[in-house]
Amino acid sequence: MSSLSASEAFLGVPPVEIPAPLSVRVEDLHVTYRASLERRPTVARRLRRLGRGERVVREVHALRGVSFDVLQGQVVGVVGANGAGKSTLMRALAGILPPTQGRIEVHGRVSTLLALGVGFNAKLTGRQNVTLGGLAAGLDREEIARRYAEIADFAELGEDFMDMPMLTYSSGMYARLAFSVAVHMEPDILIVDEALSTGDARFKEKSFARMQELCAQARTIFLVSHGLSTITQLCTEAMWIDKGALVERGDPAKVVSAYRRFLKVGATAVTQEDV
């Protein structure tokens, strides 16, 4: 890359910045949930409804035509009201929800922190859960053993707690360990969905530093947060999603202020903090 721009400079052409390689491309993405109206969809009720000609499945059109490209090394903040479709978009990027229409192209391995401690079992000790969480994320045993010390150090729970069942953890401790496992998976793309909010100020700072570190290694990060200051501090770009559509995308400060105007709230302490 550098030799190319050097030769161009030599030829008297102004050096062009060559864009980083593509990380994620989303084209006209639609996702529809098929929520069952019945709490318990049973054959009998289905037959009864069929007789009356009612629809049993209610379709929730959660994403309606979202398109964007993200380059490697970006930290993308995602904001939007409750139910806007942020988590749905993240699940689609992680390959969990299939598109109903459209196309997603992902370059690299995705590690998700969609909900805290997925795959964890509270009856197991922290140490056992690191193994279980790592295996759930697709690592093998040797890799996890190699990273174990680093993960435990980062979570800073103390050796005693690593060998206690996670039932005995506070929710912040639980979140710390879960976060620590996710960021040590060496993903190419990290997706964080409102996971930073339970850590204390010190741990939050540490997570910021770790995320910046990951970006420096040309990893791509998606960060969903209602803490608007987190978005402006940490992200290189932001997108605002409303009712399943991409409303605005670009500089985090601009997107966040547009979103704030939409919500008709000022930059008060409430919107700044992760509550």
């Binding site: 390689p21 990380s23 490697q72 689609a92 390959g95 299939p98 598109p99 109903t100 229409q101 459209g102 196309r103 997603i104 192209e105 992902v106 370059h107 690299g108 391995r109 697709g138 093998d140 190419d188």
Partner: peptide
């Protein structure tokens, strides 16, 4: 980047069995 994944709409039918079996084994 090593692997590229493309997700397209679900049309029913089987996934490609080779990659699936590899993923399962992994």
């Amino acid at each position: 980047m090593s692997d590229v994944q493309v997700y397209t709409p679900f049309r029913g039918g089987l996934p490609r069995l080779g990659p699936y079996a590899r993923e399962l084994w992994a």
